[in-house]
Amino acid sequence: MIPLNTQSCHADGSLLGEVCVTNDKSARPNGEYQSVTSENGIDVARWANELELVRREKSIEAFERLFNHFAPKVKGFLMKSGTDNAMAEECVQEVMATVWHKAYLFDPTRASAATWIFTIARNKKIDALRKQKRPEPEDLGWGPEHEPDQEDVIGLQQETERLGQAIANLPTKQRQLLERAYFSDMSHSEIAAATGLPLGTIKSRIRLALDRLRHAMK
């Protein structure tokens, strides 16, 4: 059980649980991967570290930091996609609970925390708005002893930051087109090829990580 340590919003204002977690600064990750915030506030390494703490140590502090950063983004994504406020709040809780439960599936050599959480939020959206099942590819889970290759982790983080920069540098119209494709129902054939984003480099990175993973699993 996780101690419930935050103030609940029950009508009577009662506190749930007895354990109170202090803001223990020493519990913060001390930069396992070098964490540098780029100009537009993207810090891929930091959030990968926090997820790693959730995965390895079930750290509620790390989870709360992830929550504070990503929950509003998930809510924004859901509301832009057409859910109302109440449904978005409900879905955010489900998405973030899934982040906690499925943290063992997060693979920092193939996705950033933002990417991974996006896929969970997207699946929730399909479930909530369209009432459809979402078939997902077979997972390439890590074996029990497999540790992610640090070179792949750092490489993926650099490419993800490059992608973020490239999106920020797009002409506004083009970026809005992408947002429409991802946040609402829109035909994508017109934009798939037209963005000039460094998706090829990300793809090579992921491919490399997949090759190593396959090799390790043999």
């Binding site: 537009n40 506030g41 993207i42 990503f70 983004k73 998930v74 924004g76 994504f77 996705a111 950033s112 933002a114 990417t115 991974w116 959480i117 996006f118 896929t119 939020a121 997207r122 993800t160 992608l163 973020g164 999106i167 920020a168 992408l178 947002e179 991802y182 946040f183 984003l197 998706l199 990300i202």
Partner: peptide, 9 residues
């Protein structure tokens, strides 16, 4: 990754 970056930013 593109979706993740758009959602985060």
């Amino acid at each position: 990754a593109l979706g993740g970056a758009l959602m985060e930013q």
